[in-house]
Computed example of a mutant assay.
Amino acid sequence: MLENLKTVILLGFLSAVLVVVCGFIGSIFRLGGLGILLGLIFAIIMNFVSYFYSDKIALSSYNARIVTEAESPNLHRIVGELAANANILKPKVAIIETSTPNAFATGRNQQHAVVAVTTGILNILDEEELRGVISHELGHVKNRDILISSVAATVAGMIVAIASYGRYAMFFASDDDAGNIIGAVLMSIVGPIAATIVQLAISRSREYKADATGAQISGNPLALANALRKLEFGNINDPLMDAKSTDAHMFIMNPLSGVGSKLQNLFSTHPSTADRIQRLEEMANNHSY
């Protein structure tokens, strides 16, 4: 209950930042309260779209293909067995054609959940490790993380996109709009930062929780730990080049870990792999799963 309340507050804050950013930009164009109204409309639309279409958007973004049981019987068997262990409905199964080893879950609830894995992950993990990864993704489904993270990412992405226009607002403002220009420029900086901080707060805590839930579902925390080692190496050496920063939180391993500077990676949507592995090893040693 406390975690759900925290999430509602964080998503509400994201929506509020979006409204304020639109209000500042709207004031530069002398739109009055229309800018705030547009921000409110955008927030409502983004939350609506994220709720009903997050799975389709995520799958299409990475050309993920839903596969039948006849096409991939072993993968369906594993997902079905683990879903039964988790006492949840079996989600749909999708495959992404890429050598980068990774996986994610999406959808607004159990009835619309999809677990997607890359061909790369199928090639490098043994069955126990793959079960650990899929259990992690089912943990997100069981913990209702897939809806929360999708909505947060979509609204945060909208804040970043709209706030970026604040940098160009000065070209449309008159001399007596200096205050508004400063405000808009500040919001173009503060808005995305605020959105990113909130998104990270949601993503990182829920990765730890999904790891723990996944270890309970599979009954083998060390298998997930071993898989994370392989996935980190694979994503550093063979990063998913078309991955988007607003989608990075969906994957079990940050797909951008091999892209960009060390400073950029400090703001990763994922906790460090070493910390995740340490927690899983402690679970195994303490038999707390």
Rank of each mutant, 00 (worst) to 15 (best):
G39P: 05
N237T: 10
E127W: 01
I148T: 15
L138A: 02
I95E: 12
H76F: 12
S135N: 00
I182C: 07
L130R: 04
P221Y: 08
S61W: 04
Y51F: 07
A161W: 12
M283S: 02
S54E: 07
T246R: 02
L31C: 09
P73Y: 02
R77L: 13
K92G: 09
I236R: 15
S60M: 12
I95P: 04
A215Y: 09
N47S: 15
F267S: 11
A215C: 10
V20C: 02
T154M: 15
V79Y: 12
N226K: 14
I96S: 12
F52N: 02
N143S: 09
A225R: 09
G132M: 12
I25Y: 04
G219T: 08
S245R: 06
D175V: 07
N143E: 10
N226H: 14
M46T: 14
I236A: 14
A215D: 14
A116S: 14
T98F: 03
G12L: 13
A248T: 05
I44F: 13
L224N: 13
L231E: 08
I25M: 05
I41C: 09
A284W: 00
V17F: 05
M187C: 06
P91T: 06
G23F: 08
P221L: 15
L224G: 12
E129N: 03
H112D: 15
I202E: 06
F233H: 12
S61R: 12
D175Y: 04
I148M: 12
H136I: 08
A84S: 15
A195L: 11
T98L: 09
M253I: 11
E71M: 05
Y165G: 14
N123K: 01
N226Q: 15
A274T: 11
S257G: 13
V19H: 09
P271Q: 13
Y289I: 12
L11Q: 00
P101F: 10
A64C: 04
N85G: 06
I236L: 10
